[in-house]
Structures are given as C-alpha cells and as structure tokens.
Amino acid sequence: MFTPSPYGWISQYFTGFFFAYGVYLPFWALWFEEQGISPADIGLLVGIGFATRCVANLLLTPRIHKVEHLMPAVRAFSLAGLLFVGFHFFTGGSFWLMALATVLFNLCCGPIIPISDAMANYYSRLKMLDYGRTRLWGSVAFIAGSTVVGYLVSLYGSDMILYTAMVGMLVAFIFSMRKVNPMPVTDTRQPTQRPKLGELLRDPNVIRFLALVALIQGSHAAYYSFSTIYWKEAGYSEAIIGYLWSLGVVAEVLVFALSKRLFVGWSLRALFVVASVGVMVRWGLTASTTALVALVAIQMLHGVTFAVAHIAAIQYIQVSDQNRMVALQALYNAIPLGAFIALMTALSGWGYENWGANVFWVMAVMGALALFIRAEPTTTNTQDNKAALEAQN
C-alpha cells in the first residue's frame, strides 16, 4: 500500500485527481452562474482556464523531460492545486478575482494531466501496465465526482462544488506522496536533452496530428461549458445532470477497459475516423433534442468522441522515443486540449448567448472537417515503436 506497483500508484492517483476534475469540468460553470456571472463571461472564464493550461503545458511541462522528475512535479502541482481551489472562496463575486483564481488553479491542473499520463506511458512502454485499464480508474473517479457533487449541490447549494473538489485534490496529493516500485529512471541509451517544441512544430506529421485531435476534442467545448446550463434550462435537476455526465464517463470507462480487445489490429486512421463520425452524430443530436432517451444516447457516445480519440492520440505519442514523449504529451494537452478548446469555449459562450443550442451544430461540423485530415506518426526507432504499439493494443 505504501510502496505500490506502477499500476497501483498511477491508478490511485488518477482516482483522486479525476474525482476533483469530475467536479470541476461539468459544474464550475454552474458555480460561476450562481455567483451572478453572465453566460458570455462564463465562456471567457472557462476559456481563460483552457488558455492557462495551454501556456502551462507549453512553458512548464516540457521542462520536465526526465522521467525521474515526473513524480516530484505531480506532488508539487497537486498541493498547489488544492490551495488554489480554496482561493475561490475568497473571490467575493468579483469577475477579476475569479479570473485570477481560474488562472492559478489551471497553472497547476494543466501540467498534472500530461505529466501523470507521461508516467503511465513510461510504464506502459516497459509493459508494467496497460494504459487503458490504468486510465479507466480516473474515469470511474470522474463519475463519482460528478455524481456526488450533483447530489450535494441539489441539497446544500453551489459551495459544495468547491468543497468536493478540495476533497479530491487532497486525496490526490496524499496518494502522490508515496514512492513507486520500481521508480522511473531515464533510459541513458537515448538522448536526454530537452527537445525543442519549435522543432516538433515544424514536423508536418505532428502538425496534422495536432490539427486532427484539436477538431475532435475541441468539439467538446460547448458541451464542457454549457451542457449543464442547457439541460438545466430544459427542466432537468442538478442530480439528473450529474447522472448524465456520469453516464458519459461510464461509456468512456467501458472503452478504456475493453480497448485491448476492441481495437487490436486497428490503425490510427481507423480510430480517428470512428471518433470523427461520432462527433458529427453526437453534437447533431445535442442540437436537435433534449428528450431524456436522446440524452442517454448522446452521453453514451462520449466513449467514441473522447475515449477512442484519446486512445488514438496516446498510441501516436507512444511511438515516439522516450525523449520526445513528454514534449508530445505537453503539446497534445497544450494545443488541442488547451488553446483550441479555449478559443472554441470563448466562441461557444458568444454562440450560446445568441444561438442557444444551435451552437452544437458548429461542433458537429468540426467532426466532418476532421475526416479530411490524415495523421501518421514520425518514427525514429522502429523496434521500440512497434513494441509500444503492441503494448497498447
């Protein structure tokens, strides 16, 4: 328990962090609304959060390129994240203080995801764990966080959003303080200098990869920011909304758990095409109806629009050499999951205020555009890359 295996350490850390993330992602906009913030300003605040994660992942995360530095970084960011969630209590309804709290928290939250994923990738390459089965515990915790906070908010009010998120971050920090057996060690047979992001961004394959994932994952911007408000306006309670978010992550968990069986022999192109078609169907339905049966189907598609695309992205990153792995992971989280979602979130705030649910049609079009982009990984070590893909599949 106190010196767990790599699978135990990472899956348990994912449990604490993604419990907090399951509170943050679906309900932070609702907390802003309860503080009197307008939909357009909510879009800006949530967009600021994504933009901050982008900056953090471009400037901070790539500096942690040696695997033995990953664990201390996770510990430091987890402690700081816990403190900055608490800072939200002192914003007093001020937009600018809320913006400051958002920036501070996301400076910590942003690097945690790629750094912890990089640890999982490191041990996955060594065949000490299965990434999908490890990552699914984060998804289970996300379900627990969104379900618990939805219930607590319906009983005690929106401040429970902050209290519940703090509990998750505290658990994550406590789990992170343990050692793991074996500890991560950089492979000295590979170059250890910090890779330059500029060089990666001049690689056409990397650019196509980032653009493709940006369209698929960026299509979730309106969902992350306004689905809770949209469904509440349609007459659903906070508890029902929490269950709907949880259902989406149930689908995600199933895909992660069965990924080895489901996708053995699948190419990266096939995985990305399935995700793109899922985007078109999911957001088209979201724009068209709020019937509960349809919402159930919409949320089950989260296993396609998010999980399948994420697995494909992780496979793309795993075929890189160890020295580029953290940098690619940082770019993946900084640009598709950070900058582009920040842009789309800000635009969706304006779009939701003016068009209502029709903003989801814009998200559906992004899936259609993704079908035209083909991303192939740049390989540097054929045997290592083949082994990495075999371990993932």
Rank of each mutant, 00 (worst) to 15 (best):
R125W: 04
S94D: 11
M169W: 11
Q193F: 14
Y223I: 14
F87W: 14
L107H: 03
F90L: 10
A141Q: 07
I229P: 00
L215R: 03
F142G: 02
V213E: 05
V140G: 00
L170T: 09
L201Y: 10
G198Q: 06
S219F: 10
T102F: 03
I174V: 15
F87T: 06
L126M: 15
M119D: 02
L136M: 15
V103P: 00
M119R: 01
V153K: 06
G218V: 11
L136C: 08
G168D: 02
Y122M: 13
N181Y: 09
G110Y: 11
L201A: 09
V148E: 08
G150H: 03
L215N: 08
I174S: 13
D117T: 12
A118K: 05
V140C: 11
F226I: 04
F105L: 12
F175Y: 14
A211R: 10
P182F: 08
F87S: 08
R178W: 15
E199P: 03
L170W: 01
G93R: 00
G157Y: 07
L155V: 13
S154I: 06
A214E: 02
G138F: 02
D117N: 15
L104Q: 00
T228Y: 09
S154P: 09
V185P: 10
N106L: 11
L210T: 04
Y131N: 02
A172R: 01
Y123D: 01
L152Y: 03
P191R: 12
A141N: 06
I174D: 01
P182R: 06
V206T: 10
T186Y: 14
M177K: 13
F142Q: 00
G157C: 04
R178V: 14
I112E: 04
C108N: 08
L197V: 10
G218W: 07
V149F: 04
F95G: 01
G168R: 04
G168I: 01
M98N: 05
V103M: 08
M166E: 09
S124W: 00
Q217V: 09
V140I: 15
R178H: 15
Y131H: 07
A144G: 03
P184Y: 08
T188W: 07
R133W: 04
D187G: 09
M166W: 05
L129T: 05
A172W: 02
V180L: 13
L152M: 09
D187C: 13
P195M: 11
I216M: 10
L210A: 07
M166K: 12
L129H: 05
T186P: 10
L107M: 07
G86W: 09
I112W: 10
P114D: 02
V185L: 10
M169V: 05
Y122W: 12
G92V: 00
M160L: 10
F209S: 06
Y151S: 12
R125F: 01
M160H: 07
P204T: 08
A144E: 00
Y224S: 15
G138D: 12
I216H: 03
S139P: 07
W96E: 10
T91I: 00
Y224A: 07
P195K: 09
T188I: 07
T186R: 11
A165T: 09
M183E: 15
A118Y: 05
A172M: 13
V149T: 15
F105T: 01
S227E: 13
S139V: 06
T147S: 14
A118V: 14
C109K: 04
L100P: 04
S146M: 04
M98C: 08
S124P: 06
F173D: 03
T147M: 13
L97F: 13
K232E: 09
A214V: 06
A99L: 05
L210P: 03
K232S: 12
L107Q: 01
S146H: 04
